[in-house]
Amino acid sequence: MADIAVSTRGLVKIYSNTVKALDGVSINVNHGEIFAVLGPNGAGKTTLMRILTTQLRPTSGEAYVLGYNVVSDGDKVRRFIGYVPQEFSVWTDLSGYENLLIYAKIYGVPRHEINERINEVLRFMDLSDASKRLVRTYSGGMIRRLEIATALLIEPEILFLDEPTIGLDPAARKMVWDKLTALNKELGLTIFFNSHYMDEVEMYADRLVILNKGKVVVEGAADELKRSVGGEVVELTVDDMSKTVHRVNEMNSLGIRDVNIDNDRGIVRVIVDNAEEALPVIITTLRDAGVRIIKASISRPTLDDVFLKYVGGKISEEGRLQEVRTLRSVIKKG
């Protein structure tokens, strides 16, 4: 098997001839890595995953999973992938065991192996004790683990997870990720997941792409991307943001790499090599210029900063509204 688990070239998906969900997406995912697609709602993450899992056909471009073309060799792809959709994928009026039993039969697991396989995935997901209970009585985290268990029944090579921890509390999120990282480390399973939680991507993904408005904004390892933003960040809450940006831009000597405004939070971010040294100088300069500083803080770069640099929060929000409106009118027309 090739080293590349998933690759796409110039993938475009247009819904009903008007909504462009994907606009030329090219990515590569290596075997055995945890790969994240990060982006705001409506960026095209789910569409990309639905194409890779053979549910949708791309309008143009090519996609390969384990070397198989997802359109012409869809039946081969389906034999090696596990998939957990963002919504529910189990029947809540059956027990956990029965859900696994039905899925095992649908997947065509050989009859004499079914019981053993089910017990194995139940044990792995810590659901053995709850297996006889109706899924209706499960917590959100248990349902997610059961869904992952069903995806493991065919012993997949790649696991596709669409927003795996959406709506879960922090403890349940951690438990789900403990299981997923164990699958990745112990069984060498390739994991491909979508998320809009920066912290989750930062903590668990080996590599990621940021997707916005159907386009790949940037691809790389989390550390690499953070380094590309710069060393450290000084965050300032001030009474005059544009004047602040103007003044800080004039200070060349401090190793200032970038200055940007985060309108959502009403702060100015100054990206510098060494924030502790830069902060006093920045404060003095701004005070001299007559800018009132309400709050100042220092932080190390996160994927938030990467996102802000490459995407810019405000712009994507507007784009999203436009997109939602177009999508709604398409649905209305039926």
């Binding site: 053979t54 549910q55 957990v84 959709p85 029947w91 649908i106 997947y107 069903t150």
Partner: peptide, 10 residues
């Protein structure tokens, strides 16, 4: 998500 999931089975 059940229909989506079923579509990804063999």
């Amino acid at each position: 998500g059940i229909l989506k999931k079923l579509l990804t089975t063999p």
